[in-house]
Amino acid sequence: MPGSKSLGEFEHLVLLAVLQLKADARAIDIRAHILEQVGRSVSRGALYSSLERLEKKGFLSWEVEDTTPERGGIPRRRFFVTEPGLEAVRNSLRAISILSDGLGEVLG
């Protein structure tokens, strides 16, 4: 069952970025968004392999958009988080919230 699969830290970031970008969640924009918002520079190779993994886990899906001339006729993909993906993000956030409870002093 997809929902029971674990979520890596980077995968977590990717799913959140896709959720924030909504209709603009294309691979190039996801990478730019993580860099802008979190200040983390992600290699394209790592991003594509994460997207592939998340798709395999059933957390992410995509649909094809129209192409533009500068893409040489290759369509763009817009990603969206699936229901199991959303569930996985919720579970992960909940776990973090529970485990960080009472650590205010340490974590600041």
Partner: peptide
């Protein structure tokens, strides 16, 4: 890979 062609498109754009 399932993503191959799309990666080529993204890279062309960039």
């Amino acid at each position: 890979t399932a993503h191959g062609p799309y990666i080529l498109g993204d890279l062309r754009e960039e």
